[in-house]
Amino acid sequence: MREIVFDTETTGLNPATGDRMVEIGCVELVNKVETGRTFHAYFNPERAMPAEAEAIHGLSAIFLSDKNCFREHALELLEFIGDCPLVAHNASFDFGFLNFELEVCGHPPVSMFRMVDTVAIARSRHPGAKHSLDALCSRYGIDRSHRVKHGALLDAQLLAQVYVELTGGRQIGLSLAASASADPLTTISLAPRARPYRAPRPHHASAAELAAHAAFVSLLTDPLWPVPAAG
Rank of each mutant, 00 (worst) to 15 (best):
S60Q: 09
C69E: 13
L133V: 07
A74K: 00
A48T: 14
H107M: 13
R139G: 00
A120I: 07
A122M: 07
N90K: 04
R139P: 00
A120H: 03
P45N: 07
F97K: 01
G128N: 03
K67A: 12
G96W: 01
A88N: 02
V104G: 01
A53Y: 06
I81W: 06
D66N: 13
E72I: 10
L77M: 07
N44H: 15
S111M: 14
V116M: 12
A48W: 09
G58E: 08
R114M: 06
K130T: 05
F70P: 04
V110Y: 06
H40D: 12
H126M: 03
P109S: 06
C137Q: 02
F100V: 01
H89V: 00
L75M: 10
L75Y: 11
L59V: 04
A129Q: 05
A51M: 13
K67Q: 10
D94P: 04
G82Q: 14
S138R: 12
A48V: 12
S124R: 10
F43I: 05
V110F: 07
E46S: 13
P109M: 07
C105G: 07
E79P: 03
G106A: 09
P85L: 08
H107K: 15
R139F: 00
H40W: 06
H57N: 08
H89C: 00
A91I: 06
P85F: 13
E101G: 02
G58T: 06
S65L: 10
A61L: 13
S65V: 04
I62H: 10
E79R: 10
C105P: 07
D66S: 13
Y42P: 03
F63N: 07
S65E: 14
V116L: 14
F100E: 08
A61I: 02
E52G: 11
M49N: 04
A120Q: 11
P45M: 14
L102P: 02
